[in-house]
Design a protein around this nucleic acid. Structure first.
Lengths: 195, 195
DNA sequence: CGGATGACAGATTTCAATATTTGTCATTCG
DNA sequence: CGAATGACAAATATTGAAATCTGTCATCCG
């Protein structure tokens, strides 16, 4: 075994994130990633078939990080569905708003990656809608919500709150009125589900 | 008076629309507009202070055309507010979907103009939200809706249905599932207003 | 022998020279 | 005299030649 750690997909992804953070989505090259790892760019191609695949994997990782917090809220037992739904929507908005506000450049970088990788994004969105469906189904079982078609309702909730999680609206999230606008939509949608 | 009709802002706007349709937003120049009118480009600048102002005026005109249909629905007397609101939202979606579907290139051209002219767009959106507020207020007065803050509720309805009128989502509007998704959000939102 | 290398061809991006466009205004025209 | 013109400077866009990057693969190294 050599002095440096073995070259793994994991290490390559880490380095790619760093390079993207430093150079942005247009300037970051595979050669940069290889240089950051102290290997030739040919070695990177041993673990990822293309630059596109590498960027896709990084995008997937980034999206995955948000899902954990939401999953915890979804799985929380013994809490009214309406409250849980409100908490879930607020957590999603909060997470996005922080990512966008803390480091706008990095957020812009990932917004570009998101646009490039619609397959990964679609899978991520499906996962989020599936979590919503679990909460909505819980509410329906408890008689809290009156919902004929749970998946459709979950999708509708997600669509209706798009302004507060779709990155295209990120510039609006730093405006002061945004909190009130979010509360209004969140409340409207939850009322719409009620029995 | 010369043989040709007098040069008016109206005629210039017409010619500008035609040039934008033909050449698209990046290639359309003030010289092209002047050529279409058979005058020198200096004459165009007698009626509009800049190319930006000209494009802004064209954008305003284009947005104005949709408002008429919606205003007629808003003003219709003796109709339940819930029904009116459903019709209004459906009409807005229908209008956008047709504009986008009938001539995608022209729609793309105007999408670029919209992005350039956020002042005009904001004014247009305010007008739409004001119409929504009238319908919501009617419903509240009739005891059909239970709404503590009418302007906020109107804004929330508009925000929640963004996926079906914001041009950024236009590519989704040709998908077959879109009608069901629209119905689901529309119904959810209207239920959320109900007393 | 399995993993890493770097030379290479084709694709893509950059950059600077060149051309076009915007906006002004002194002059012309009816 | 008021509206229209077109020459012009500054700003912007286009182009194509040079540089860089992606992806492959014959070769090397431990």
């Amino acid at each position: 075994m050599s002095a440096a750690a073995a070259l793994t997909p994991e290490r390559i992804l880490e380095a790619t994130e760093e390079v993207l953070r430093r150079y942005g989505p247009t300037k970051a090259t595979v050669v940069d990633v290889a240089r950051a790892l102290g290997v030739s760019h040919g070695s990177v191609y041993r673990h990822f078939p293309s630059k596109a695949a590498l960027r896709e994997a990084v995008t997937d990782r980034w999206l995955g990080r948000t899902v954990g917090v939401l999953e915890r809220i979804t799985a929380e037992p013994g809490r009214p569905a309406a409250e849980k739904l409100a908490a879930w929507l607020a957590a999603l908005f909060e997470a996005k708003r922080h990512k966008a506000g803390d480091d706008p450049e990095l957020f812009a970088t990932y917004t570009v990656l998101l646009a490039e990788n619609s397959r990964v994004v679609d899978a991520h969105l499906s996962e989020l809608v599936a979590q919503l469906a679990r909460i909505v189904a819980e509410g329906a079982d408890a008689g809290e919500f009156s919902v004929p078609d749970v998946p459709a309702a979950a999708r509708a909730v997600f669509d209706a709150t798009g302004r507060f999680h779709d990155p295209q609206y990120a510039p609006e999230w730093s405006r002061p009125e945004i909190a009130a606008a979010f509360e209004a939509v969140s409340a409207l949608v939850i009322r719409g589900l009620r029995a």
